[in-house]
Design a protein around this nucleic acid. Structure first.
Length: 568
RNA sequence: CCGCCCGUAGCGAAGUUGGAUAUCGCAGCAGAUUCCGAUUCUGAAGGCCGGGGGUUCGAAUCCCUCCGGGCGGACCA
């Protein structure tokens, strides 16, 4: 793994262990300690850049006051070549913490790493190319996409991007529910809307989809084909209208996702599972394995014996398989396509489905633990302090289309990734529409634009040599001694591990936050340290730092498919 | 009744493999620009980390319990 920061942390841990051995050899401590300890970044920088609790963790084992052990370790490491090169100070503190303060040698070496990586800084091969399928949005093609789909889109897409940055090989997938009960319901609804054109007395069935979008489809069909369908049977009419409308709805979802900058590798159609016989096959498989029984005319799956709360119907009394049966076939198919892990982004209202889905995979001989479900809490819209109720049925819900008409894609993608998936969020439409400084995405973009402006200005005025590159500043990197310079450099250093942690936790919000923190540290640096200064060596060193920040911010925003303006 | 998520400053959140004086933004208060972009920065103020009990050197973090909010518990998806 080409990750300077974590390689360095391991080196520090090794240094502590080796110092402990030295102490033992010198007869200072009674044994070579074996207990594990933690190396962490203290919340308060006054306690160093890195802190180890080794002396405390070893206190019992060595039967020695931790503070005393820490002092001996600190002195030992400080005297070593590794210690001299990288640390300004190593000290024992508090109850026995071992605190490390980075020295200029460390910062200079780190900055060289970041500069060499450019916009790729932060990426690692941690995931070893493991193939992961990320399924998200998967909206029904029976109506407009809602705010849950919007959050799921931003979350799933950025999560996939983070996994890629952490070295995984990801595929983005959209599961199109173009079969089953809701399609029946859609047929019923569009049939009513079609007949309504010619007879206003016809009403949409109470259980049907009430949205205007269905009427729009019916009208556009009638505009082309007229009233001929009125003379067909109800079944023919429903089928014809459905076959006409659903592909159009799916095409709309494609273009909507394009606008949202979400590009899927696969649009997997539920209907394909039926057409290929995969649904019947998985039902047959479950029957063979004795996982089913018949009752009240339906075929049941013994879910309660496999992690579910209660048994579930696989095939209804009317002979039609349930969505659950299709979903088992679908996930079986996914694993058969060679993914070692599948991640699904679901709305929290589907949580009841999680245990039985994983259990079903185990039951048919797959590994349910390789399916990870992200239960995303639903979004609540507010406008003027009032909650805006979402409802597909009223036809007045705020859709993804509406949202992207009101708010720039950059802001939507960023804002939806500012909260961990499992936290509930209110989306304040009034605030989000504001393109003001309050918007965090502008704060990050501005940091980038500001840096570009520095380079622009210096080039215009001929202060910078025409052939100047950040590499030219590296020999002077040890000139960066101000706290603001060192804090900023240290923050750059943590990105690789931040991305790995975000990937492991499935939490893109950690990276949007990182980006804001980095931008904030840059602005502090900018205020405290003049880049354009009299001393050329120092200016070059600062320009190198600026370029590293510029490229790192650009790398993150680009990863999230957010624009990176040179000026605003 | 059962299950899942959430509860941290006026508001929105971070921190949850147990660590030092609990972090950040917004709003409000007081300031900063002859000079690289003020869409910026500095400072002060603001807290029984929902309540209670437990585990231990140490708990926002782990366990129990109660309270409050959201969402589930279809031959819907």
């Amino acid at each position: 793994m080409t990750d300077y920061a974590s390689t360095f942390r391991r080196a520090v841990q090794d240094a502590i262990l080796s110092a402990a051995e030295d102490l033992y050899n010198a007869g200072e401590i009674p044994a070579v300690p074996t207990g594990s300890f933690v190396l962490e970044t203290p919340a308060d920088r006054k306690n160093g850049n890195l802190s180890a609790n080794a002396a405390m963790a070893w206190a019992r084992e060595l039967r020695r006051p931790p503070r005393k052990t820490a002092e001996a370790l600190a002195a030992q490491i400080a005297a070593s070549p590794f210690g001299k090169q990288n640390f300004e100070k190593i000290e024992a503190a508090g109850a026995g913490f071992l605190n490390f303060y980075f020295g200029q040698g460390y910062y200079a070496a780190l900055l060289a790493e970041v500069s060499a990586a450019g916009k790729a800084w932060g990426r690692s091969d941690y995931g070893q190319g493991e193939r992961i399928n990320v399924e998200f949005v998967s909206a029904n093609p029976t109506g407009p996409m809602h705010m849950g789909n919007a959050r799921g889109g931003a979350l799933g897409d950025c999560l996939a991007a983070i996994l890629e940055a952490a070295g995984y090989s990801t595929a983005r997938e959209f599961y199109v529910n173009d079969a089953g009960n809701q399609i029946e319901k859609y047929g019923m609804s569009i049939d009513a809307r079609y007949r309504q054109i010619f007879d206003p007395a016809v009403a949409v069935p109470e259980k049907g989809y009430q949205g205007e979008d269905v009427a729009v489809r019916a009208k556009s069909y009638a505009a082309i084909h007229g009233d001929a369908l009125l003379r067909a049977t109800e079944e023919e009419r429903k089928k014809t209208l459905t076959d006409y409308a659903i592909p159009l709805n799916i095409a709309d979802m494609h273009s909507m996702m394009d606008k949202y900058r979400v590009y899927y590798d696969t649009w997997y159609h539920e209907s394909a599972l039926y057409a290929s016989g995969a649904v019947d096959a998985v039902i047959a498989l479950m029957q063979e394995k004795g996982l089913t029984y018949e009752a009240e005319g339906a075929l049941w799956y013994k879910a309660s014996e496999h992690g579910g709360e209660k048994d579930e119907v696989l095939v209804r009394a009317n002979g039609i398989p349930t969505y659950f049966a299709a979903d088992i076939a679908y996930h079986k198919n996914k694993f058969e396509r060679g993914f070692s892990r599948c991640i699904n982004v679901w709305g929290a209202d589907h949580h009841g489905h999680v245990a039985r889905m994983k259990g079903a995979l185990d039951a048919i001989g797959l590994d349910g633990s390789k399916l990870d479900i992200i239960l995303m809490q639903l979004v609540r819209l507010t406008r003027g302090g009032e909650v805006v109720k979402m409802s597909k049925r009223t036809g007045k819900a705020i859709t993804l289309v509406d949202l992207l008409e009101e708010i720039p894609v950059d802001a939507v993608r960023f804002l939806f990734n500012m909260r961990a998936p499992e936290s509930q969020m209110d989306f304040d439409l009034d605030l989000a529409v504001e393109q003001s400084a309050q918007n965090p995405v502008y704060y990050c973009q501005y940091a980038h634009a500001r840096i570009c402006s520095i380079f622009r200005k210096l080039a215009e005025e001929g202060v910078l040599p025409a052939d100047w590159t950040p590499a030219a500043g590296l020999p002077y990197a040890e000139r960066l001694t101000a706290p603001e310079e060192q804090e900023l450099t240290a923050k750059l250093g943590t990105l690789p591990s931040e991305i790995i942690e975000a990937a492991k936790a499935y939490n893109p919000a950690a990276i949007t936050r990182y980006c804001m923190d980095l931008a904030a540290l840059f602005h502090k640096f900018y205020t405290a340290c003049r880049v354009r200064c009299a001393e050329e060596a120092l200016m070059f060193a600062r320009l190198t730092l600026c370029a590293a920040v510029r490229d790192t911010v650009a790398g993150i925003l680009t990863m999230f498919k957010i624009d990176v303006p040179d000026s605003m």
